[in-house]
Structures are given as C-alpha cells and as structure tokens.
C-alpha cells in the first residue's frame, strides 16, 4: 500500500493542497521522517494518524518550517503548498514561489497540543501577533480581535474579560483562544497538532465542531491521536509508521475504529487503549 503515494505523486493536480516529495527530516542525525511523499487533497480535514513517535508532528511542522526552530534539524526533499493565494514553495524555499519565513508562518496558522497562550492578556494574545507580524493598524485591532473571538465562539465567554491574563482561562477556552489567534492572522491554511489531546470531552467536542465548520472555509491538516476523533473529522487520512507513510485513505467514510486499528498495528495484536 505504501506504493500508492508514489503513483499519486505523479499527478500534479490542483486538487491537492499540499504536495510533499521525498521528505526526510532528522535531528542530530537521528532520522524522524524517512522519504515521505504525500499529496493532501483539498477540501475537508486531512488527518495524520499513527502511534506516538511515528513522525506525525514532525511532518506537520515541516509544513510551516517550524522544525528549523529546533536545533540539529536537517530537512531533505520538497514541500509545496497550493493555497488560495497561489503556489508556495515551502522547502527548499529557493524558487520563485518561495515566501519569507515570517509570511509563511502567518499564512499557515498552527495550533499546538497543549494550549500555548502567550503570557499576556486575552486581548493582547490576538492583537500583538496582528500588529507585529501583519503590521495591522491600531484602529483596526479591536474589531479584528472581536471577529476572531466570535469565529471560535469565545466572544460571549470573554467579552467582559479581555484584560484578564489569558493564563486564567480554562483549558478549552485557552485552546480556542489559540485557534482565534491563528485565525486572526487570516491564514490560508490551518495546521493542528492534536488540538484536543489536553482537553476534556466537552471542550474537545466544541473544538471539533469548530474545526468542521472551519474546514469549509480553508484547508485544515491535523494530527490526531484518537481514532474515533479521526474518523469523525477526516475526509482524508494518512497513516504513518516509524517515520514512513504507511498508507493513505482518501475515503474514510464507513470505516470503523477496528479497521483503522488493524491498519495502525499491521499484523500485530490489537491494543484497545488507543481508541479512547
């Protein structure tokens, strides 16, 4: 099944939002991704699944070149995005379609596993990146902060607490704030690294609903730990194993958790704890 990626790769079609070819990433000579070629189709949420340590997060981070922030990183191969705003050469990032790093990071928003709010007020969490990375004029800031908070359904909850430290929000609220921060920068694409892993069931469902709604507006690529969640959200799935792409599932509807689990485990025995 691993060969399927190679055949798809040859079709250079605008149906794909992300094309990675022969992508290998290593940290201090320890290979984390090995020769991954993956085309992610446009529309809906694409979910990367796999055991921990299979390289999902590293793959996701190579889309906005965040791996480079970690020392000892070496990247080979190529990554290309076809965003609404045009083609973007992410890596090696030397061609005519390359964009500056800061612009790439702004256009490809990211949300992390644990909510990474900045240690400032709720309002400034959104307004500081807006003014620093987009140069947004001061007069527009308030409206944009409000828009972003409304989009993640957080405005009602924090409208009267905008000047409170963001660290005092609940976990679910913090994660939605992070989503709002990413959305405020008007990204062309969203990357989500297990965005619900540190949330309770209710908050997780809330975020999931938001993501489904958002995926109508812009491409979303997500790493997920939970198989049930993956099946609920995904319109495309890529299964990773030990730094390699194991298989792609372009139509996950009708699959059941058991099927997915067998895929993850190969021929090995089935373990239940993954399916929470």
């Amino acid at each position: 099944m691993a060969g399927k990626g190679v055949t798809l790769m040859e079709k250079q079609d605008s149906r794909f939002v992300l094309c990675a070819r022969g992508l290998s990433v290593s940290f201090f000579d320890h290979a984390v991704l090995r020769d991954v070629s993956l085309n992610v189709p446009a529309g809906g949420i694409a979910v990367l699944v796999g055991r921990s340590g299979s390289g999902k997060t590293t793959f996701l981070r190579s889309v906005n070149r965040l791996n480079e922030e970690v020392s000892g990183c070496r990247t080979e191969g190529s990554v290309e995005l076809r965003l609404p705003g045009g083609k973007v050469d992410v890596w090696p990032g030397v061609g005519p379609d390359a964009v500056p790093l800061a612009e790439l990071r702004r256009r490809v928003g990211m949300v992390f596993q644990t909510p990474q709010v900045f240690p400032v007020t709720v309002c400034r969490n959104i307004s500081v990146p807006l003014s620093v990375t987009m140069g947004c004029p001061r007069s527009e800031l308030d409206d944009r902060v409000k828009d972003a908070l409304v989009r993640v359904d957080l405005w009602r909850e924090v409208a009267d607490r905008l000047d409170m430290s963001a660290e005092r929000l609940s976990g679910g609220q913090q994660q939605r704030l992070c989503l709002a921060r990413a959305l405020a920068l008007e990204p062309d694409m969203l990357l989500l690294d297990e965005p619900t892993a540190s949330l309770d069931v209710r908050s997780a469902r809330h975020v999931e609903d938001l993501l489904l709604a958002l995926s109508e507006q812009l491409p979303v690529i997500m790493v997920s730990h939970g198989l049930a969640q993956s099946l609920r959200l995904a319109s495309f799935m890529a299964v990773m194993e030990e730094g390699r792409l194991r298989c792609e599932i372009s139509n996950p509807d009708g699959m059941e958790e058991g099927d997915l689990e067998r895929l993850l485990d190969g021929a090995e025995d089935v373990r239940g704890e993954e399916a929470n």
Partner: peptide, 12 residues
C-alpha cells in the same frame, strides 16, 4: 501584501 511596508517597519 497590503501591509507590506508596516511589516517591514516592524521587522526593522
């Protein structure tokens, strides 16, 4: 980019 100049100013 609409805000290209101000972006440049900020990075400066």
């Amino acid at each position: 980019m609409r805000n290209a100049t101000s972006v440049r100013r900020m990075s400066r």
